[in-house]
Amino acid sequence: MSPQRSYMSTRGFTLIELMVTLAVAAILMTIAAPSFLAFQRNSELTSAANGLVATIAAARGEAMKSGMYAMIVPADGAAWSSGWVAFIDKDANRAFTASADQVISRQAALASYFTVSSTGTANESPPYIMFDGSGYPKTTSNGFGQLTFSIARSDVLDSARPDQTRNVMISVAGRIRSCKPASDSDPKCRASDNDD
């Protein structure tokens, strides 16, 4: 007589086991998704601030290398959240002319849950950042101009906003710095005035 084979060891999942596993997975996803979204947007915020710092540094470097004015202006000419264009002002009209000026870099528009505020020439109409051939931030009237940018998430509560804000500061001497107002010990990071 041949031994009978037992099929109990080769059976699959029961419907109840599968439902319990899916329910646990759904609960874990519900808990993890908001944390992941917050992490992702915080990373995007840091990336936007670092991108602005890199653009400003590149424009300043190109101004010093070429001995000409370099500028950064909003992509739409009015709002920094639309992105920005850095260029060497070859035609010396102190505005971006696509056919005449040399583009250094472009930044795409920021996500809709970011707001950008600024001081100095970056808050004028039209807004701009301009460096002379010595690397100093200048105004169109040839004065020196310090600037501060504040990039913040608008999708968080007011109490969480300081932690979800990055400031980019340009001093009168042209020094560029990024900081987080909620944790930076330098009071200049929390103020709009950033004298050296």
Results as ranks from 00 to 15, higher is better:
W80L: 13
D101C: 07
S82Y: 07
F114E: 02
I88W: 06
T97F: 06
A98V: 08
V85E: 11
S105N: 03
F87V: 02
V73E: 03
A108Q: 13
S81W: 00
A78T: 08
A86N: 10
A98H: 02
S105P: 01
Y113S: 13
K90Y: 08
A78K: 03
N93H: 06
S82L: 02
I104L: 14
S81K: 03
A86R: 03
F114N: 04
V73N: 06
R106V: 09
V73K: 06
Q107E: 14
T119M: 01
A75N: 05
P74L: 09
N93V: 09
P74Q: 11
Y113F: 04
Q102L: 15
S118E: 02
S105F: 02
K90W: 06
S117M: 00
M71E: 00
A95F: 01
Q107Y: 01
W80A: 11
F114P: 13
T121Y: 06
S82Q: 10
S99Y: 04
Q102G: 07
A92E: 15
Q102Y: 14
R94P: 04
G77N: 05
A98G: 13
T119R: 13
Y113G: 11
A100Y: 04
G83M: 04
S117K: 03
V85C: 06
W80N: 09
V103M: 04
G120D: 13
S117P: 00
V116E: 05
I104Y: 14
T115K: 14
